[in-house]
C-alpha cells in the first residue's frame, strides 16, 4: 500500500503558478495580453511573465496616486507595523523565495537563503525607520526672532522605481522599502530578466495589511515601461537604480523626468548586502518648514 502511494507521489505533476502584475492591490494580467519567457540562469524555462504595456504603467501610477493620501496620512507607527508585518509574512514563505531567488539569480541554496534573510531583515530595518527619520532629518530651527520654526520631512508623492536588474529580490526590496517607509507610494519596474521574485513579493505585500496601491509591481521590458513612468506628469520622483549598466537609458529617463521636475535618484553601484544608510529615504522626502509667531518675551526670565 505504502509503496503504491509513494509511487503515485513521485509521478505527481506540480501545479504551475501564473505570475501576474500587482496593481492597486489586485493581480491583473497585462492589459496588453502579452507575456515573455523567463528562464533560470542556465536557460531553463521558468514561467511566462506579463509584459507590461504603457497603459499598465499609467494604471499603476493612478493606483499609486489614489493610495497616497491614505498611506502618507497614516501614522509613522502604523506604517512601521505594516512594514514589520511584511517581514513576518516573508519569513513564513522563506523557502519559496529561496527557491525563486536561487533559480532567478543562479545561486546555491545557501547563498539564496542568505539573500532572502537579508531581504527580510531589510524590511525590519526600514520598519524601524518610519517613526525615526523625522527626528534625524528634521528639527527646530533657532531663527533670530520670536518665532516657532520647525522643519519636518514629508513624502514627495508617487515614486517610480526602476529596480536593480541583477539583484532581483534583495535589490528590489532595498529600493522599494525606503520609498514607502516614509509615506510615498511606488510603481516598481522589476528586473527585466528575473522578474519572478518581485512578482511573488506582491503576494506577500497583499497579505501584510499594506493598503492596495502603495506598491505596484510591473514586469516587462525596462526600455518600454520606464520611459512612460519617467515622463508621467503625475509621478513625483524617479529611482534609476536598475539603469546602472545603461547610461544612455538613464540619461534619457532623467531628461524625460525634467518635464515636471521629478526628483531623480541617479544610478550608482550599490552593494545590496551592506547596511543601507538613509539616502534612499531622504532622496524622496520634501522638507516642510512651519513658522509661527511666539509672541514677545520668549525667553524665560526666572531662574526658578
Amino acid at each position: 500500500m505504502s509503496d503504491k502511494s509513494e509511487k503515485a507521489e513521485a509521478v505527481r505533476l506540480s501545479v504551475f503558478k501564473t505570475y501576474k502584475l500587482f496593481v492597486g492591490g489586485k493581480f491583473p494580467r497585462s492589459e496588453s495580453g502579452r507575456v515573455y519567457e523567463v528562464t533560470d540562469a542556465k536557460g531553463k524555462w521558468l514561467a511566462n511573465a506579463p509584459q507590461s504595456s504603457r497603459k499598465d504603467a499609467r494604471d499603476a501610477v493612478s493606483a499609486a496616486r489614489k493610495a497616497f493620501a491614505g498611506w502618507s496620512g497614516a501614522t509613522a507607527y502604523n506604517r512601521g507595523q505594516i512594514l514589520y508585518r511584511v517581514a513576518e509574512m516573508l519569513e513564513g514563505r522563506r523557502e519559496q523565495f529561496v527557491r525563486e531567488v536561487g533559480e532567478a539569480e543562479g545561486l546555491s541554496k545557501s547563498k539564496a537563503a542568505a539573500v532572502v534573510d537579508a531581504a527580510i531583515d531589510r524590511w525590519v530595518w526600514y520598519a524601524g525607520w518610519t517613526d525615526k527619520i523625522a527626528q534625524v532629518v528634521g528639527g527646530a530651527n533657532p531663527v533670530a526672532g520670536p518665532y516657532f520654526n520647525l522643519s519636518s520631512p514629508e513624502p514627495t508623492g508617487v515614486v517610480a522605481v526602476v529596480a536593480p536588474q541583477e539583484s532581483s529580490f534583495l535589490g528590489l526590496v532595498s529600493v522599494v522599502a525606503p520609498v514607502i517607509a516614509t509615506g510615498n507610494t511606488a510603481v516598481v519596474v522589476t528586473s527585466e530578466r528575473a522578474p519572478l521574485p518581485a512578482l511573488s513579493l506582491g503576494e506577500v505585500l497583499a497579505t501584510s495589511d499594506l493598503p492596495g496601491g502603495v506598491v505596484n509591481i510591473l514586469s516587462g521590458r525596462t526600455s518600454e515601461v520606464a520611459p512612460t513612468l519617467a515622463a508621467h506628469m503625475d509621478v513625483n520622483a524617479l529611482d534609476l537604480a536598475g539603469t546602472v549598466d545603461d547610461a544612455a537609458l538613464a540619461k534619457e529617463l532623467e531628461i524625460a523626468a525634467a518635464d515636471n521636475l521629478k526628483r531623480v535618484l541617479r544610478p550608482q553601484a550599490v552593494d545590496w548586502a551592506a547596511e543601507p544608510g538613509t539616502d534612499r529615504m531622504t532622496a524622496f522626502l520634501e522638507t516642510k518648514t512651519v513658522w509661527h509667531p511666539a509672541g514677545a518675551g520668549a525667553a524665560s526670565g526666572s531662574a526658578y
Binding site: F148, A294, G295, Y304
Partner: peptide, 13 residues
C-alpha cells in the same frame, strides 16, 4: 491663540 501658546510655553520651566 497660537502665539500665546508658544510664548507661554517658552517661558514655562
Amino acid at each position: 491663540k497660537g502665539s500665546r501658546i508658544l510664548s507661554v510655553a517658552n517661558q514655562l520651566r
